[in-house]
């Protein structure tokens, strides 16, 4: 049976829609996890407000002239990386949405916040 008029239009529309959905989903699945770079110069995190998506990696690099110690006190996100020397990088993969504080165990005033979205 040949399609004509409205029927053809509807079929074309449905095909386009499903292709669109497929593409959209595909794009979502394929979203490359990014690496977010955070510096520590002058005993201050830069940036101080860090935004990430689930699956991203936050790379804290000690680009300062003194040792640092990245630590997270927030319940559910608690981690610690002692003795981060000059030139070293601590990579943290964020797997859970929410937000948490990042401190330094050496410098009591060194803080940043990370917000993780889906």
């Amino acid at each position: 049976m040949l399609l004509g008029g409205k029927a053809l239009y509807r079929a074309a529309l449905a095909a386009a829609l499903s292709a669109g959905v497929a593409l959209g989903l595909g794009a979502d699945f394929a979203r490359a996890a990014s690496e977010i770079k955070v510096g520590m110069g002058g005993a201050a995190y830069a940036p101080k407000a860090i935004k990430a998506k689930v699956g991203d990696t936050i790379a804290f690099t000690n680009d300062d002239f003194t040792d640092h110690w990245v630590y997270v006190p927030t319940l559910g996100y608690q981690v610690s990386r002692a003795g981060l020397k000059q030139g070293e990088t601590f990579k943290l993969v964020v797997a859970k949405p929410g937000s948490f504080d990042v401190g330094c165990a050496v410098h009591a005033n060194m803080w940043a916040t990370v917000t993780v979205e889906r």
């Binding site: 608690q78 981690v79 610690s80 990386r81 002692a82 601590f90």
Partner: peptide
């Protein structure tokens, strides 16, 4: 318990 710290260096 008030959590669990994952210590990455060791």
């Amino acid at each position: 318990s008030f959590g669990q710290i994952d210590r990455y260096e060791n």
